[in-house]
Computed example of a mutant assay.
Amino acid sequence: MGQIINKLSRIYIKKKVKVFMAGNPSSGRTTILYKWKNQKIEYYQPTLGFNVEHIVHNQVEFEIWDAGGGSAVRNIWIHYLQGVEALIAVLDSSDLKQDQDYFQEQIKKLLANLPSNNLPFLILANKNDKYQASLEEIEKYVGIEKFKSQIQYKIIYTNPFSGEGLTEALDWLSQRFI
């Protein structure tokens, strides 16, 4: 039934958007991606390269590139940015000490290599059931002050197990394109 609805919804697609989704290892990127895709939680192996899925929401088809978070993969992220119109960063809001400097450097590299300025930048503060960092803590972790002139951003608390924030995230992103 879900596949039929997905195929029918493609008839009404107004816009196709390539999205690059990045984050630290074990931040929950892949779990979020497949919760959006399948509406269920499964347990996944760490992403070694990329997962690519098409998600249709509010007449927008998102081609989401889930980039593995390991340091070897991070070095090749910039080679997959051609045509990207939005960026999603997933962080583990219960562990804001994890690779903060490296995370900020990678976001800086991504933004410097994207084809346009002022693109939508969705920050998913995941795992907020363990600890919900404040917006200020998240902005500091991401280093948002350094990037504000280049982006339109939104921070959304997420928990894929309860579904919290996931629809809101796609709503915000799709509104940038319709």
Rank of each mutant, 00 (worst) to 15 (best):
Q3P: 01
I4C: 10
I5G: 04
L8T: 03
K14V: 07
K14D: 14
S27T: 09
G28K: 07
W36L: 00
Q39P: 02
I41Y: 02
Q45F: 11
G49D: 08
N51S: 07
H54V: 02
H57N: 00
E63N: 09
W65E: 05
W65Q: 01
A67P: 02
A67V: 09
S71N: 12
A72Q: 15
V73F: 13
R74W: 03
H79S: 14
Y80L: 01
Q82Y: 15
G83N: 07
E85R: 15
I88N: 01
L91C: 12
S93I: 08
S94P: 05
S94R: 10
Q98F: 12
Q98Y: 14
Q98H: 10
Q100L: 07
Q100V: 10
F103P: 03
K109E: 08
K109W: 01
N113C: 11
S116N: 15
I123N: 07
L124W: 04
L124P: 06
L124V: 06
D129N: 15
K130M: 15
Y131W: 13
Q132I: 13
S134T: 14
L135V: 12
I138Y: 02
K140Y: 12
K140N: 14
V142G: 10
V142F: 08
G143N: 06
E145G: 06
E145Y: 06
K146L: 13
K146C: 07
F147P: 03
I155G: 01
I156Q: 04
I156E: 05
Y157A: 12
N159T: 10
F161G: 12
G163E: 01
G163P: 02
E164H: 04
E164C: 04
T167I: 10
L173E: 01
